[in-house]
Every structure is written in structure tokens, then in C-alpha cells.
Write a protein that binds this DNA or RNA. Structure first.
Length: 648
DNA sequence: ATAGGGTTAG
């Protein structure tokens, strides 16, 4: 594709243009077209840019080195066959424009955008005189493609070759540090930027990148320290610290910061910030707090004359994520001018609750109402299919996405498809799909396959997937855990111990299981074999009684649901499952057994079959609805059955 | 006279 990039002679185009009067005219009109196309692109109107480019061609003009970078952006943004990246590439080689480092940097970026990073690399390799911008494009390209280690490699390579990184390079590499969760490296980038005078006071973007990096490396202390010292903050900065607190810090801090931002009244919250804060309620299944933030959101939207649609969309999302699908649907039905986001939010809400059919229905209604789906809404509906075990429907949608809507599938779509097949037990199809993918599969693709290999006990494919996933991140504890469970499930205890030993040597620990529940305005958290709680004796007694009742009631706690099998007893006693959700449930029953209304429990790991069965039974004998949220979806237990139909 | 790389998060 990119052969012989270097032997084309540099065309002295400006000289020939000056020598020929006709061409001077051509040059002038190219200039104005180039400028107009550029303007449309940067103001977010790629269609207008395309119209201008069409006129440009109709006048018999040919793209030059100034046109090509814009064309590449256009090519990526519109995804139209009339402007094809590889054709432009061939053209650039033929005309010699590829010799121009600005043009070639554009191609490097284009290939990165399509996830085709080996093409980017090859091109980079063929460029002899590399400048900071090209190096930075490599650093950011790799990090955007989830290859943080390569991104960091390129930074050290450029340092070795004596190219001094600038503030943009460092901002890019910080994103990689976040991905890799390498706090120490992030800190040294921070120090480097100060020592070398790259960081200057009030560089909001770079400072925000530090805040974000520290938060994502799970160090909220450093993150807050940088944030607190910032003199200027924009909405991205606030977003970084608030979502940081939501994800890895404390909900209280997130809420406090949100209030502070509102009080300061200098920065309008982004819809993503609102959604993040609302997620605090989703995370703790705490509706009361959600309503409080709802109030803030309403006031903020009123003040800024923000379209109330943004607010409604965030609220629908909040209710769906808090497990209150009914409120979400009610709100959704009352929104008059539903936009693409409204529909997508509702579709993913249905998906999370395992209602694949409803998600499909909403998707069709959306199309009928004249709104065309985009890539994101396809992700929502595809994952709904995957959770609803609707393999054929999902496949049809995937085909239609490309055929009818000309949407090029991206890594996330590929991941949905792999999950769609694998979750339904079609492991070979999932593997076949991965092999046929036009881009190199990312870590998550292999992780998706791996987790289904565990469910369906496929050791061979599981080992393979784990190996692939670990080539991206050797320190991914989740991968080792899944692999060890696969071994445990098939009785391969030696292999199991080996993986665990290996983990220990790498200093990796399994995630501690945690469940939480809100009772009387307080959130109680339960971890494995929790004896600290003053109620623990009562809790364990109640669980024992319930277990006996279950056995008498003919509930086989070893029955496997949806292909999920229980891990062995040793495993249950370790920190893998811990049945913390059972502790939480027993606690609620003891504290407020007489109450009615649904019990909402949250959990940081996927629910195991044993707990799932118990919850079904308990919902029946106590005649209460139980809503259990795991990281992926909701389970709604009612009268002895769950809305997931034992498939999750 | 025109062009290439950056922070959120979905």
C-alpha cells in the first residue's frame, strides 16, 4: 500500500506555478477553495466542505499539498466512497505531495483514525526527517487506539533521538499513562514538564490532563491537588475531577465539587458531567440523591437556557441506571422532541435491563420517526441484542448498519459482535469473526471472548484469548482471574495455582467483591465474610435459615443457569465472589423486613449462579421485588423469577 | 496568504 514512499522527487510546485500565468490563476482559486474547505471543516460542517470540494473538482482543479490534509479529515468524517483515503494516498504518491511532512502526517493520522496503526507505523518509518508534530501524532495515535505502551515507547524514542517534546506531546502521552494506570510514569512526565519549562502557568489543557491522569491512576489526592491549584478551569477540567471522583474516589467529593461548580457559576456543566454526577445515584442505586442532582440540573439548564432535552436525556439515563426503568420509560414517553441521544439512551436502558425485544422495537420506532441511527446508537442496540440473546437480529442490524447507513464499524461494534456470538455460546463464530476483522483486535475484544469461554468452559479457546489479551497488558488482573476460573471449572487445579502464583509474583490482586445497599438514607457496604457489621451474626443466621428453606422448597442451588456454572467451593470461599450481595440482602430484610417496595442492591462484580438462584427464591418467599445491579446490567427478581431469564 | 499533533466522555 505504501511502497516506495521515498524515491519520488519533490516537485517544486510553487516555482512552476509562478512561471505559468494560467497556473497562477489555478493557484489563486485553489487557495480560496482550500481556505473555504478548511473553514467549513473546523466549524463542524463537513457536508458544506464536501460541496465545495465537488465544485473544486468541477472546475478541473486538482488537490494540492494544502488540500490533501483537509481531504483526509473530510474522508474520515463523512465516510463517503467518493473520497477514499487510499485513492488520495495513491494520488499523493504520484504527485510527490507525500514528500511533504504535513501531508504525510495527515495520512499517519488518517490510518490511526481507522485503527490501521500498522499502516501509520509503516508510513512513519518511511519518513526520513521527522519533526515534533509527526512524533506527537504517533504518540497520540497509539494512545487513541488503546496502545498506551506503544505511545510511551514513542515518547522515549523521540527523546533518545533528541527531539524535544512540547506541551501537546506531553498531553498526549498523559492519556496513555492513564490508560496504563502507570502513576509513576505520569508523575515523571509531570516533573519533566516543569523542569524543562514545557508547562507554563495557566496552561489549562495540560493541567487538566494531569488532573485526569492522576484520577485515572486512582490517585485522587494528587489529582485534587493539581485541580485545587489551577487558577483557570474550564468545563473539561471540572468534568475530569468530578468523573474522577465518581469513578475512583468518593461520591461525596463528586457531589461537593459539583455544588462548588454550580455555586461559582463561571462554568456551565457539560452534559457528560451531569450524567457522571447522576451516575453517582446509579452506582449506589440511590434515587433520592439522584433527585437532588436533578434539581441542580434543572436549575443549571434554566440558567444557561440549555435545551431541556439535555437534562431529560441525562435523567432518563439516571433512572435507567438506578434500576428504575419504569420512571425512565415514563419520562421518555413525555419527551416531545426526542433526539438521537434520547432514543439511544432509552435503547441502552432497555438493553441494560435485558429487554432486547423492547430495545429493538424502540430502534425501529426511532427510524420510523425519521431519525437516522449513528454509530453510537448501533452500539446500544447491538449490546441490547447481546444481552437479550438475539443473535440473528444483531447480525441483521450489523449488516444493515453498513449497507443502509454506510456506517463503518469501529472497534466497539466489533466488540459487540464478538460478545453477541460468544455470550450465546457460539464461541467458534466469535473467534471466526475476530479473525476476519479488518483491524487488529484490541484487548477488549479478546477479553469479551475470554469471559464467555469461562461461562461455556472452553479451555483451549480461553487460553488463546487470554494470551492475546495479555500481549496488550501484561498486568491485567481480570484476565488472569478469568483464566484461573476456567482452569478451576475444568478441575485443572495445577494450572489454576500456577496462574495465581504468577499473579502474586506480578503483584496483582483480584478485585475485592463488594455489594452495597441504601437503608434509611445511609449506604451500607458489604465485603467478603464481613464480620465487622454489628448485624453480622443475625445476617449469617438468616442466611442459614433461608438456605434450609430453599433446600426444602426444592431449589437446587447448584443448578446452572444460562450456561453459568458455579465455581467450586474453594473458589467461593476465596475472595472471588464472596456472596456479598446475599449479605446485603439479608441485612435489608433484617433492618426493614416489614417494608414494601423494591430492594435495590448494587454489586461491583458479576452475580454468580448461586446468588442468582437464591435471590429468585427469596423474592418469592418474601414477596418482594429485588433489583440487583451488577457492572453490566440489572436483574429484577419478582415472584421467583428474574427478568434476565437466567441469561446474563 | 492556505496545512499536520492536545484535555472529558459517550
Amino acid at each position: 500500500m505504501l511502497q516506495n514512499g521515498n524515491w519520488f522527487p519533490r516537485i517544486p510546485c510553487f516555482l512552476s506555478l509562478l512561471m505559468l500565468p494560467q497556473l497562477l490563476i489555478k493557484h489563486q482559486s485553489s487557495y480560496s477553495f482550500n481556505s473555504i474547505i478548511r473553514t467549513h471543516l473546523s466549524s463542524g460542517h463537513p457536508e458544506k466542505a464536501l460541496t465545495n470540494f465537488t465544485q473544486f473538482k468541477e472546475q478541473g482543479l486538482l488537490p494540492d499539498n494544502f488540500t490533501i490534509p483537509s481531504l483526509l479529515k473530510l474522508c474520515f468524517e463523512l465516510n463517503q466512497p467518493s473520497i477514499h483515503g487510499e485513492n488520495i494516498h495513491a494520488f499523493a504518491i504520484k504527485t510527490g505531495y507525500l514528500q511533504d511532512i504535513i501531508v504525510s502526517t495527515g495520512f499517519v493520522e488518517l490510518y490511526f483514525n481507522y485503527g490501521h496503526f500498522s499502516a501509520s507505523y509503516q508510513l512513519f518509518d518511511e519518513i526520513s526527517e521527522r519533526d515534533v508534530v509527526l512524533w506527537t501524532a504517533m504518540v497520540s495515535g497509539f494512545s487513541h487506539n488503546g496502545l498506551g505502551d506503544q505511545s510511551v515507547n514513542f515518547l522515549s524514542r523521540m527523546l533518545r533521538e533528541g527531539i524535544k517534546p512540547n506541551r501537546i506531546t506531553l498531553t498526549s502521552v498523559l492519556a496513555a499513562c492513564s490508560q496504563l494506570m502507570v502513576l509513576n510514569l505520569g508523575r515523571s512526565v509531570h516533573g519533566f514538564s516543569i523542569r524543562n519549562g514545557i508547562f507554563k502557568a495557566d496552561d489549562v489543557v495540560l493541567e487538566t490532563a494531569f488532573v485526569d491522569m492522576y484520577a485515572k491512576c486512582r490517585n485522587l489526592i494528587y489529582s485534587s491537588r493539581v485541580f485545587d491549584r489551577m487558577r483557570e478551569r474550564n468545563s473539561v477540567s471540572w468534568n475530569a475531577i468530578i468523573t474522577g471522583q465518581v469513578n475512583y474516589g468518593s461520591s461525596e467529593a463528586a457531589l461537593r465539587l459539583f455544588r462548588e461548580m454550580m455555586y461559582e457559576n463561571k462554568t456551565e456543566p457539560r452534559s457528560s458531567t451531569l450524567a457522571s454526577v447522576l451516575q453517582v445515584c446509579g452506582g449506589t442505586t440511590d434515587l433520592r440523591r439522584g433527585r437532588e442532582i436533578h434539581g441542580h440540573a434543572v436549575r443549571s439548564c434554566r440558567r444557561s437556557n440549555l435545551d431541556s432535552l439535555v437534562e431529560n436525556n441525562a435523567l432518563i439515563d439516571m433512572y435507567a441506571k438506578s434500576g428504575d426503568l419504569n420512571s425512565a420509560v415514563l419520562l421518555f414517553q413525555n419527551v416531545r422532541n426526542k433526539n438521537l441521544v434520547t432514543w439511544t439512551t432509552m435503547i441502552s436502558g432497555y438493553g441494560m435491563h435485558g429487554l432486547g425485544k423492547e430495545a429493538l422495537k424502540a430502534f425501529d420506532e426511532m427510524k420510523k420517526s425519521g431519525i437516522n441511527p449513528d454509530g453510537v446508537s448501533f452500539i446500544a442496540v447491538l449490546s441490547a441484542c447481546s444481552h437479550g440473546k438475539l443473535v440473528d437480529e444483531g447480525l441483521q442490524l450489523y449488516i444493515s448498519m453498513q449497507r443502509d447507513y454506510k456506517i463503518q464499524p469501529e472497534m466497539k461494534h466489533f466488540a459487540c459482535m464478538v460478545d453477541l456470538y460468544a455470550r450465546s455460546g457460539l464461541l467458534e463464530q466469535a473467534f471466526g469473526f475476530i479473525e476476519k476483522m479488518p483491524v487488529e483486535p484490541s484487548e477488549f475484544i479478546w477479553a469479551a471472548l475470554l469471559s464467555s469461554c469461562r461461562i461455556y468452559k472452553n479451555v483451549e479457546l480461553g487460553e488463546n484469548a487470554a494470551k492475546k489479551a495479555l500481549t496488550y497488558d501484561q498486568y491485567n488482573a481480570g484476565v488472569y482471574i478469568l483464566l484461573s476460573r476456567i482452569y478451576a471449572d475444568s478441575g485443572r487445579w495445577e494450572d489454576f495455582s500456577m496462574v495465581r502464583l504468577f499473579m502474586k509474583e506480578l503483584g496483582l490482586k483480584p478485585v475485592t467483591a463488594r455489594s452495597w445497599v441504601e437503608v434509611e438514607r445511609k449506604v451500607y457496604t458489604f465485603t467478603v465474610r464481613d464480620n465487622l457489621n454489628p448485624y453480622s451474626k443475625k445476617i449469617y443466621n438468616l442466611l442459614e435459615t433461608l438456605k434450609e428453606k430453599m433446600e426444602k422448597g426444592g431449589f437446587d442451588s447448584d443448578r446452572s443457569g444460562g450456561g453459568h456454572n458455579n465455581i467450586s467451593e474453594e473458589e467461593n470461599e476465596s475472595d472471588l465472589c464472596g456472596h456479598t450481595e446475599k449479605l446485603a440482602l439479608a441485612f435489608v430484610l433484617i433492618k426493614c423486613g416489614g417494608h414494601q417496595g423494591p430492594i435495590r442492591i448494587g454489586k461491583n462484580l458479576r452475580v454468580c449462579t448461586d446468588c442468582h438462584e437464591s435471590f429468585k427464591f427469596i423474592s418469592k418467599i418474601t414477596n418482594r421485588e429485588i433489583i440487583l445491579r451488577d457492572p453490566n446490567r440489572y436483574h429484577q427478581f419478582k415472584q421467583g423469577s428474574c427478568n434476565c431469564c437466567d441469561f446474563w
